[in-house]
């Protein structure tokens, strides 16, 4: 790209705008009372689904960049991840405030349910990732940042599990998300195995990818 700073800004703002569309849609439907007969359930499902979708989008950025060579995609990754967290938070707030009306009986009563446990675990593991998403945190943590952010795989697995566990009969949607996740995970596993087998040459390659996926600004062009 001729002007890396411009490209970065464009990708960033377009990603932010895109991630805000579901929120705008939900807000519009809420304000106009067009969420249907069961608005609380509707809000719960939409926010949960968008959290999961953006999580998978976050995971798709690196494979997509490697396969296509579109390095300009990289700045989108952090934003997608942060919005996955944002919709997850919204989902949790809708659950606590609207579904359960902050009733301790209802909230505690739900804690024995496998799908609820998976949901809380998934969300909880997202918190440290969101908290260390800044450049400052990335620099401060050094190589441990990469290690910490591998938690995103656990977050995604738990989110798909959460979905699978709550379904009444139609397992197709959670299975489709699950299949996408398996695909993304196998790409990573494959890539890391290839690096390991290829030996010293690839150690160099690994350092390079680490830097790029670590979003160092000088590498993103």
């Amino acid at each position: 790209m001729r002007n890396p700073a411009f490209t970065r800004r464009m990708v960033t703002s377009l990603t932010v705008a895109g991630c805000l569309i579901p929120l705008a849609f939900v807000a519009y439907r809420t304000l106009t009372g067009t969420l249907g007969a069961n608005p609380i359930s509707n809000l719960t499902n939409r926010t949960g689904l968008w959290s999961l979708r953006l999580l998978l989008a976050t995971l798709a950025v690196t494979p997509l960049r490697r396969l296509s060579g579109w390095t300009w995609l990289m700045p989108a990754r952090r934003i997608l991840g942060l919005f996955a967290f944002f919709y997850g938070l919204l989902h949790l707030v809708v659950y606590l405030a609207l579904n359960q009306a902050f009733s301790a009986t209802l909230i505690l009563g739900d804690l024995s349910r496998p799908f609820i446990i998976a949901g809380y675990l998934s969300f909880t593991l997202m918190v440290p990732l969101a908290a260390t998403s800044t450049m400052g945190a990335m620099r401060a943590l050094g190589p441990r940042w990469q290690l910490l952010h591998r938690l995103i795989y656990a977050v995604a697995i738990l989110a798909v599990l959460h979905y699978l566990l709550l379904v009444k009969i139609d397992f197709q949607p959670p299975e489709a998300y699950g299949a996408l996740l398996v695909l993304l995970l196998s790409y990573r596993i494959g890539a890391s195995l290839r690096r390991r087998i290829a030996g010293p040459v690839s150690r160099h390659a690994q350092t390079r990818t680490t830097q790029t996926s670590g979003q160092s600004p000088q590498r993103s062009d």
Binding site: L98, A101, L106, G109, P114
Partner: peptide, 17 residues
């Protein structure tokens, strides 16, 4: 026997279960 609780229900149109 289902993943969610059967102890409470939301009457359509109500806020509180």
């Amino acid at each position: 026997r289902v993943p969610w609780s059967q102890r409470y229900e939301r009457r359509i149109g109500d806020f509180f279960k």
